[in-house]
Structures are given as structure tokens and as C-alpha cells.
Design a protein around this nucleic acid. Structure first.
Lengths: 142, 142
DNA sequence: CGGAATCCGCACAGATACTG
DNA sequence: CAGTATCTGTGCGGATTCCG
């Protein structure tokens, strides 16, 4: 087994405890975030959105990803049923990846977030500049 | 300054290079993911969704978050213009956090993803079990 | 109450080399 | 082409302590 395998936090030793609150650590949103709130998962999904791609095709398209992280994240997505891996036994072997129907659903659900990023990341960048400038001024007083 | 300040990757030494492709490292989606694709940002935003909260109120509601990460992530969200911090000079001082209009927009955009998690994380969990069982069988053959 | 400062482990991510 | 194996380091995130 390779080092990082994206295992769930796994609250195993929970034998009849207070159970803090229901929003808690096992709410669906947190479980989802634990899986796709990383640097590459969403990028891979969106890249596969228009159609299937091969390993090195993905690697070329997603600038800066290492083959290790690509391989690792693809396996995680495959395990979660979001991506399907198909091996075509040519010589040399050719492997294609595609989003599953479940992955397509998630991709659709993520689209609003992606659209927001296109529209608003400029505003966010401005907010940062303004914030940093205020901080700068405050530190000059002291 | 505290240790982690969520600075951008910062491609500084890029003096006239090939510039791989346009999807690249500075597309809006990646910039957004670099900021909110962490363990706590989305959780804090959704917790602030219904209305403003105080520091320890947030800490109590988000099970498992440490003071450091709460403080750090709140500052990051404030810097990005997504969350507003208000200090009420009572004794002792009371500080409230609320989503800004920009943060509200993002929250709305994230809602589809959250809804999907509610509906489908069960399916994802099943897919994992099935995947792990297949892997188990394969390793038994070898 | 609402943090800041410090210490520290370990998981994650990158680089490199090798394989079928 | 499509990966795995191994080494290494950085920084994320937790625990603890202290402060206005």
C-alpha cells in the first residue's frame, strides 16, 4: 500500500458517548469535504467533465500536478465511485478515465461554485489587498 | 505573525518562461480552491449562514476545531472579504462574526454541493466498501 | 471571552528513479 | 504509456500556555 490512501477519519472507538452535537464530525458535508476538499480532486473532475482522458493527458492538462498526486487522487476518486477507470489492452496498454454518472452529478453541483469563482475571484483579490494594506498601516502605528 | 497565513503559492521566479497552458495555476477555480478547499472554511461559512455568531459559539458548534485553526481560518475568510468581524467594546470584549454579502453569494453557490452531499454520501460510502472488497479479493489471489 | 505565541508530529506533497 | 517505490521536507493542524 502506498502512503496516502485518503482513509476516512474513522471514529471507531465511539461506544456510547455523549455525542457532542449532530452537526458534528460525521455530517454529510464534512464527509464530502474530507474527500474532495484537497488541491486536486475538483480539478481532475472538471478536466474529465467534457469527456474521457488518459493518464498523461490529464497530467499535461493540470499544470503542476505530480504523477504521484494524480495517481493517488484518481484512485481516491475511483474508490468513491466518482471516476471510472478503463484499461484498454493495447500495446502498450492505454488507460482512460471518465466521470461516472455519480461524478457527473457532483460536477453539476460544483458548477455554481466554479461560476462564482469566475465572476468573483477578482473581488476576493481586491479584498485581500485592502485587508493587507489596513494591516500594514496598523503595524506602522505600533 | 502567526505561522500559517494562507499565502498564495506565489510563482515568483517566472521570468519569461513557456507558460504551459491557460487552464494553468492561476485559473479562478484553482485560486478559489487554494483558499476554501481546506478542512474548516466551508464549515465556518455554513455555520455563519443562519446568522452572526461569537468566537466561542463557533468553536462549540464546529465539533473538533481547535482555537488556532478557528482563529486562523476566520482571519483568512475575513481577509478574502467573505466574513466580517465586529468588535463590540463591552467588558469583557465581545466579537461577532458574520458572512458578508460576498460570502453569502459563495454560500449560495456552495448550497448545491451541500445538498448533493446530503443525498449522495451514502452512495459514495457504498462505492468505497465495494471498491475495498474488490481490492481485498485481488490481493488474496496474489 | 477572544484570542496570540510557541512547540511539535506527522501526513501530505514533491522529486527522483525504476518497472511492465 | 501508465504507473509504482522510496526518500525527503515542508507546513498543516493539534495541544498547550499565556495575555488583555
Amino acid at each position: 500500500m502506498q502512503e496516502g490512501t485518503f482513509t476516512a477519519p474513522g471514529y471507531s472507538g465511539e461506544t456510547a458517548r455523549p455525542a457532542p452535537n449532530v452537526y458534528a464530525a460525521d455530517c454529510p458535508t464534512r464527509l464530502l469535504l474530507d474527500r474532495i476538499a484537497d488541491k486536486w480532486s475538483v480539478l481532475i473532475l472538471t478536466t474529465l467533465g467534457p469527456g474521457e482522458r488518459r493518464f498523461n493527458g490529464l497530467k499535461r492538462h493540470i499544470d503542476g500536478i505530480s504523477q504521484k498526486m494524480l495517481s493517488q487522487t484518481l484512485r481516491s476518486l475511483e474508490r468513491d465511485g466518482l471516476v471510472q477507470r478503463d484499461v484498454v489492452p493495447t500495446v502498450p496498454v492505454s488507460v482512460t478515465y471518465a466521470v461516472t454518472p455519480l461524478g457527473r452529478e457532483l460536477l453539476d453541483a460544483l458548477q455554481a461554485m466554479i461560476d462564482w469563482a469566475e465572476r468573483r475571484m477578482g473581488t476576493v483579490a481586491s479584498a485581500q489587498v485592502a485587508y493587507d494594506r489596513r494591516e500594514e498601516e496598523l503595524s506602522l502605528i505600533a
